[in-house]
C-alpha cells in the first residue's frame, strides 16, 4: 500500500482518540500548564507569578522532598511485588479446572472494593492496634502495635493493601497467558522440556508484551497512588504515607493552591515520563513481539 493510503488509514483508525484529545483533553492540559506559572486559588482568577511555584518547590518546601521520597519507596516496593504476585496467581488461575470461575471471582473480589470507604474500616480491622494481625501475633507471644498509625510501618501496610488488590494486573496476565499458542507448549513437551524450562523459554517471552504493559502502567499508577493514603492514613503519621498525589490533592483542594498543585503535577509528569522513556528503551532487549519477528530468536 502506498504511504499516502497508509497515512489516511492510520488517521482514520486513531481519529476517535485524536478528536477526543483535541476537543476534551488538550485544553485542560494546556490550562494546567499555564496555571503552574500562576497563583490560583480557584475561588478567584489566576495571577501570573512566573517560576515562583517551581522555585518554592525546589527551594524550601520540605513536604515536596518528603512526599517524593515516600512515593519512590512506595513504587520501588509495590510495583515488583504486585507484578510477581499477580503473575504467579495468573498462572495458577489459567489452569482448566472445575470451579475455576468461582476461584477467580473470589480472588478478584478484593480488587473490586478498591476505592470504597469500607476498605478503610477493613484495613483498620486488620492492621489496627486491636486488629487481627495483632491477635495472631499474640498467639505467638509477640506484642503488636498500631501498624497503620506507626510512622515506620504505615507505608508498609499500604504497600500490602496495594498488593492485595492485584486483580487488574492479574487479569491482564491471564488474558495474555491465554494468547500464548498451545502448539508451542505441545512442541516443547515433545522435546521433553520441563515446566521450568517451558516457563522461561515460552511463557515469559510470549508474555513479555503484556508484562511490559503491566510494568509501565504499574509505575505510572503507583506514582499517582492516592485513594488508600487519602482514606486510610490521611498521609500520616508524621507524613510517613504522604504520597505525592496526596500532597498535590491537599495543595489543590485543601489549601487552595491550585497553581502550585499544577506545578507539582507537571514535575511528576516529567519524572514519570523519563522513567517510561527509559522503560521503552530497555524494552528492546527483553520484550518479544511475535509481529516483529522476535529479536531474541
Amino acid at each position: 500500500m502506498a504511504q499516502r493510503g497508509r497515512n489516511v488509514a492510520g488517521y482514520v483508525f486513531i481519529s476517535p482518540w485524536l478528536i477526543g484529545f483535541l476537543l476534551l483533553t488538550l485544553w485542560p492540559i494546556a490550562q494546567s500548564f499555564y496555571l503552574s506559572f500562576t497563583d490560583y486559588s480557584m475561588l478567584a482568577d489566576p495571577v501570573w507569578t512566573g517560576l515562583a511555584n517551581y522555585r518554592h518547590m525546589f527551594g524550601d518546601d520540605d513536604s515536596f522532598t518528603k512526599s517524593l521520597k515516600v512515593t519512590f519507596t512506595f513504587v520501588l516496593f509495590s510495583v515488583p511485588l504486585k507484578l510477581f504476585f499477580s503473575l504467579m496467581v495468573a498462572m495458577l488461575l489459567a489452569k482448566n479446572l472445575r470451579g475455576m470461575n468461582v476461584y477467580r471471582t473470589l480472588i478478584y473480589f478484593p480488587s473490586l472494593i478498591g476505592g470504597s470507604i469500607a476498605v478503610s474500616v477493613l484495613w483498620r480491622n486488620m492492621f489496627g492496634a486491636d486488629g487481627y494481625i495483632n491477635a495472631i501475633l499474640a498467639w505467638f507471644g509477640i506484642a503488636g502495635k498500631g501498624w497503620i498509625s506507626s510512622p515506620d510501618t504505615a507505608l508498609g501496610t499500604l504497600i500490602l493493601l496495594n498488593t492485595w488488590q492485584f486483580g487488574s494486573t492479574m487479569v491482564i496476565f491471564l488474558a495474555g497467558l491465554k494468547q500464548v499458542p498451545q502448539e508451542l507448549y505441545e512442541a516443547a513437551a515433545v522435546d521433553g522440556a520441563g515446566s521450568f524450562r517451558r516457563f522461561f523459554r515460552i511463557t515469559l517471552p510470549m508474555l513479555s508484551p503484556v508484562m511490559f504493559f503491566n510494568l509501565v502502567l504499574g509505575i505510572i499508577n503507583s506514582f499517582q497512588m492516592f485513594t488508600a493514603a487519602f482514606v486510610i492514613t490521611k498521609g500520616g503519621p508524621v507524613q510517613s504515607t504522604y504520597v505525592y498525589a496526596m500532597f498535590l490533592y491537599e495543595k489543590a483542594f485543601k489549601h487552595f493552591q491550585m497553581g502550585y498543585a499544577s506545578a507539582l503535577a507537571w514535575v511528576l509528569l516529567a519524572i514519570v515520563a523519563a522513567l517510561t522513556a527509559i522503560n521503552f528503551l530497555v524494552s528492546r532487549y527483553w520484550v518479544f513481539y511475535e509481529a516483529e519477528g522476535g529479536r531474541e530468536g
Binding site: W17, F21, L24, T25, W27, P28, I29, Q31, S32, L35, M42, L217, I220, F223, Q224, A245, L248, Y249, A252, F253, M258, A261, S262, A265, W266, L268, L269, V272, A273, T276
Partner: peptide
C-alpha cells in the same frame, strides 16, 4: 507519546479546567 503522556498528568489538576 502524547497518548502515554496523558496518563501521567494527575487528573486533580485537569479536572477544574475540564
Amino acid at each position: 507519546g502524547i497518548l502515554l503522556l496523558t496518563m501521567m498528568l494527575p487528573t486533580q489538576v485537569t479536572i477544574i479546567p475540564q
